[in-house]
Simulated scan of single mutants.
Amino acid sequence: MKICIYGAGAIGGLIGGLLARKGEAEVSLIARGPHLAAIQKNGLTIKGPDETFTLDNITATDDPAELGPQDYVIIALKAHSVAGIVDKVQPLLGPETAVVAAQNGVPWWYFYGIEGETKNRRVKAVDPDGKIWDGIGPERAIGCVIYQAAEVTEPGVITHMAGDRFPVGEPTGERTERVKALSKLLIGAGLKAPVRTDIRSDIWVKLWGNLSFNPISALTGATLDLITGNPETRAVARKMMLEAQAIGESLGVNYPIDVDARIEGAAGVGPHKTSMLVDLESGRPMEIDALVTALQEMGAITGHETPTIDTVVSLLRQKARLLGCY
């Protein structure tokens, strides 16, 4: 079994490192810059909550053509970067290669594998020119939800702070052999990676928090405990989440918890900076389109107004443009 991690940063490097340590698959990494150079020279080091290990001989390169076709390609780039690597990923794609879309937010394949008026509709916010859909193909896609908190603390070193859930699922809801085999590999590597028959609902539960807490944190600089603990910002987040819930339910999404329980779950995380706030502080592009713009698009598709989301994302885009992060 051959698995390539395209984008071996914090999350991709962590997943790749765990899989490689288990040794049940031939794992390779696509990385770049000082991080790649450090991996090639010193191996990949994972510093986990309970242990630290180094993989001395893991294959790492910046040229996918060196690796050839894979059984699985896990693309662990930010959503706005995926379209830019569609041409580069082609050497990794054989006739049966599955592609795991390991991004936050609404995935580019979202409307593939469902029936009704939205069947095979493209999500322009995350795939504006259809390049990903046409270049990778939705039939290759396997969905997942990322719950790991990790960062590249120095080149070649990834610190895993928390999180071991990584549910996976086919867009069609089927329990195919390829998704079951992937689940088995991930579970063997130490992750909680069940096969979900409704991966979209799992995606929405995480998106529920990301679409609200991330923009508010980027606008205010506040951590999760402050956003949820302040009545004013908590109320804004709640309104955004309820607007999104109405859209999701109209698309058949099942929410296993209510909005207040979801907010309390975020409050329990404590003084945590969201990924959007970290990106803003680092001067990197933020995942505005996958986390929020896609919701506006889905609201238009389903006939649901999103006044709170619209206001917050307008302010966020303006701030991002001023800082060169959009």
Rank of each mutant, 00 (worst) to 15 (best):
V126S: 03
D127K: 06
Y72P: 01
F166D: 14
D56N: 12
L67R: 06
K47Y: 03
N104E: 03
T45K: 09
R165M: 15
E51I: 01
S81L: 13
D134Q: 09
V99G: 00
A141D: 07
A102L: 15
G135E: 01
P91H: 00
I142S: 11
E96G: 04
A60Y: 04
E51Y: 09
K180W: 11
E174P: 07
V123L: 04
E154S: 15
A65R: 07
Q70V: 01
V152D: 12
G68M: 08
A149M: 09
W109T: 01
V126N: 09
G48S: 04
V152S: 08
G130N: 01
S81F: 08
D134P: 00
E66A: 13
V123S: 06
T97W: 00
E139M: 09
V106P: 14
G116L: 09
K119F: 10
G68Q: 02
G94Y: 04
L92C: 02
K47L: 11
A76Y: 05
K180L: 15
D134T: 06
Y110C: 06
K41V: 03
D50Y: 12
P91Y: 03
F166P: 13
H160C: 07
T118A: 14
I114K: 15
V179Q: 12
L93T: 00
E117K: 15
E174M: 09
A181D: 12
H160L: 01
R122H: 02
D62N: 15
V123H: 05
H160G: 03
E151W: 15
L92W: 02
E117P: 14
K41W: 06
I46T: 01
R122S: 05
L93A: 06
G163C: 12
G84R: 05
K78S: 11
T54S: 06
P138E: 10
T153G: 09
L92P: 01
D50A: 14
N42D: 15
P171R: 11
I114G: 11
L92D: 01
L93M: 07
L182K: 12
V126R: 07
I75K: 00
T54D: 03
G116W: 13
F111L: 10
D50S: 15
